[in-house]
């Protein structure tokens, strides 16, 4: 409990400890803390920036999506228009073709009936002649009455 030179020894030790602390302990740790603080602040700022960019990208994406939808709708509308047009054209063509075929068929039928009528006419004439011949076998001379027969044939 006596005050003695220990006092001086303690004061000197204290001074040395403080000096050491000031030179080798405090600055590097505070520097590391500051550096880490900066690192974290930078990281947070980068995260903020990233978030902002993400928002922008999302906005851009939705815009693109709307655009694409619009375009797709346009294309579909165009395609529909085009298809109705094509169908219309095909219909018209088919109708024309049909008309043409009908006309051709009609013409052929006409021709055939005409030909059949011609043949019939000949056959009837021959038949009439044959019938008349049978009736008039004796009285009628085909050569003598040829002009008459011809006149009948033409009337048929």
């Amino acid at each position: 409990m006596n005050i003695n030179a220990t006092l001086l020894a303690q004061a000197i030790m204290f001074a040395l400890f403080v000096w050491f602390c000031m030179k080798y302990v405090w600055p590097p740790i505070i520097a590391a803390l500051e550096a880490r603080k900066k690192l974290i602040a930078d990281g947070l700022a980068a995260a903020d920036r990233g978030k902002h960019e993400l928002e922008l990208a999302a906005k851009r994406a939705s815009e693109t999506l709307v655009d694409a939808k619009q375009k797709a709708a346009d294309i579909i509308a165009q395609a529909e228009k085009r298809s109705t047009q094509l169908i219309e054209e095909a219909k018209n063509e088919a109708k024309d073709e049909g008309d043409r075929m009908i006309a051709a068929a009609k013409a052929e039928i006409e021709q055939e009936s005409h030909r059949a009528r011609e043949a019939l006419r000949g056959d009837v004439a021959a038949l009439v002649v044959a019938g008349a011949g049978k009736v008039l076998r004796r009285e009628v001379n085909p050569q003598a009455h040829a002009d008459l027969l011809e006149a009948i044939k033409n009337e048929l």
Binding site: M1, T6, L8, A9, Q10, A11, M13
Partner: peptide, 8 residues
């Protein structure tokens, strides 16, 4: 020890 505390 008061020497230590007074030293500081």
């Amino acid at each position: 020890d008061p020497n230590a505390t007074f030293g500081m």
